[in-house]
Design a binder for these strands. Structure first.
Lengths: 348, 348
DNA sequence: CGTGGAAATGAAAGCGCTTTCAAAGTCGAA
DNA sequence: TTCGACTTTGAAAGCGCTTTCATTTCCACG
């Protein structure tokens, strides 16, 4: 191996010199342009090999006027929800020849600034949940960077993809009422996120339709520990059913109930949302969401928007989509004709 | 490459013109240099606001000679294992002022090329598990891009972080033997990954120490379905214990056992690895790993290497670290003095 | 008023690459 | 042997930004 002047990476100039050609030729040889002779290409390849050259993508991107990268912003990655979305996004973006930059805002005080910075590094950006405010979203949209909002309240002129919450929550509520449950408590914060608001709304609506009062509401963060805490409080005067904003919380409530000597579903019903793996093993009735598809759809929409943008300046009308969700009935909501063996299994 | 001044993002030139200053001044004003008057800075800020300017990070990075971004390569993101590592990595990198590029190689035939490309987009790269071969690793290392390998066999001269496998597997094996289990089967592929090899080795070693034959080994992919399949086969002639390469597989075997009318742990013991949330609810004995810390450590090491590299060309000796893991005993490995209530709970 | 020196600003040179445009080869036909 | 018509290659102009270095401006002081 040749003596490298420094531990610095080789540039196209060194490859050119080594191969005895110009940088233009190197560039063409590496990009499979048919404008170079086979023999030249071979010489360039040899030089690349010898110098262990890897093109600096910054230079390339700057020259091409595109980052060849997309970004995705999410609050967290604990629990399968966001991870699956990110995975779907990465998979689709990657197929479209784009790298993926991630940004978790969880607990960051400078989230808005970080997102703005990210916007300057990508050709398109997906923003999930309650990570940044509408102002930031609008200001990014104004810079011309294509944007897709996921599971987040829509903003004027910006594409949005969400999952169905209200209708499936209503379905869930109807199921619980059919089990004879009347005193139902919602654990989660309708104010915190539009998804949560929709879930609560669906529940409340169905109860009202049955002449029942608006269900109690216990705001709570979305992990097992928070569920256990709220659950313990509820056990002082257990309701018929506890509808939780997500599975982690529901599993926490489940634990708290058992700890208090109450049996699920005999003494009270508990339901979640997301259908995490653990829900299956805890026999938890929940709602499954097409998370992977959510991410993949975002990546594809962005790709389309980016193409449109380079084609012309006309601003198309914003797209909206609501992906279907599905109720997954297991033991935790009450006894069913065919009981599912403990502690495993479930029905899809 | 048509220059439509319309939907194109604003550049530093337009801001400069709008503010009536040079681009150098704009740059300084935005970077909080103390070389600009307050009044000038205000004028620049106003122009930025008016034009909704966001600096193009490509230009900036190219000029600064750094990407201000790190990459991480992993096979997949299903299950909490990789997700947690990525999260820890992102968190630490983000604190150090670096963005994070992700690349999932799962199922990609052009993984090596994609990783090489990624290497040209970052200042440092973490590579997890069996994503790319040693050749690719060496060739990236040769370009001078700092590299850290995670849960992967070491390569000459490259930093590596792993989690303890063999010793904890031996501990687990001893525990199973203490329960009286003698016929033990390992579900997983020691050939597939060094982590798996370590787990099998620890198990085999302990069994040998007790005068028992080398355990049977059932190669298998690492999801619930694969576990169910292998589990169903095993139920024809159930062993005393099934040691699984990870929790998903163990949960699958668990399901298969129940489906075949066998009870865990009464008829057979089952153990996993990773301590996923579902393991807690299935009462699965498993091993917990510091995944978050694995990722965070990688990010910090890379930051250090990047700093060293810009400081001087001297090549430091590669670092190695093995992070501790912990046996988590629950019901699934056999009856314990204090039985844990079903179907929840566990001991940490 | 004039001056030296500090403070603020501008001009311009890159950073590593792609791509246009022009120049230099190459080859077959006249 | 000479001439076009191609085919290959090279020179150079950016892409958007940072930063050095030179220049201008502004004051305090003589």
């Amino acid at each position: 191996m040749k003596a490298l002047s420094k531990s610095k990476a080789a540039t196209i100039y060194e490859v050119a010199r080594h191969a005895g050609v110009s940088i233009a030729t190197v560039s063409r040889a590496l990009r499979d342009s048919d404008l170079v002779t086979e023999s030249t290409r071979a010489r360039v390849r040899a030089a690349v090999e010898a110098l262990n050259y890897t093109p600096n993508q910054l230079g390339r991107s700057l020259a091409e006027g595109r980052h060849a990268a997309n970004g995705i912003v999410f609050p967290d990655l604990t629990g399968p929800y966001y991870a699956e979305v990110v995975l779907g996004y990465e998979e689709a973006a990657s197929e479209l020849g784009r790298s993926v930059l991630i940004l978790a805002t969880h607990g960051r005080r400078d989230a808005e600034a970080a997102v703005l910075d990210l916007a300057g590094r990508v050709d398109g950006l997906a923003v999930m949940g309650n990570t940044v405010g509408d102002d930031t979203v609008r200001s990014i949209a104004a810079t011309g960077v294509p944007l897709v909002l996921l599971a987040r309240p829509p903003v004027d002129g910006v594409d949005t993809i969400r999952t169905r919450n209200e209708r499936t929550a209503a379905e869930l509520a109807a199921h619980l009422l059919a089990h004879g449950h009347r005193r139902i408590v919602f654990v989660g914060d309708p104010e915190a996120a539009p998804d949560m608001a929709g879930r609560y709304a669906g529940l409340a609506k169905t109860m009202r339709a049955h002449g029942l009062p608006k269900p109690d509401c216990r705001p709570c963060s979305y992990d097992v520990e928070a569920g256990e805490r709220i659950g313990a409080q509820l056990m002082a005067d257990p309701p018929d059913a506890v509808v939780c904003a997500n599975d982690e919380v529901a599993l926490g409530v489940h634990l708290a109930a058992e700890a208090a000597g109450r049996s699920v579903p005999h003494d009270l019903a508990v339901t979640g949302w997301d259908d995490v793996l653990a829900a299956r093993f805890a026999g938890l009735t929940t709602v499954s969401q097409p998370m992977r598809e959510l991410g993949a759809t975002a990546a594809r929409w962005l790709d389309g928007r980016i193409a449109e943008r380079t084609a012309g300046p006309e601003r198309a009308t914003p797209r909206r989509r609501v992906l279907p969700t599905q109720l997954v009935v297991r033991r935790s909501c009450g006894s069913h004709p065919v009981e599912i063996p403990s502690p495993l299994g479930g029905t899809a």
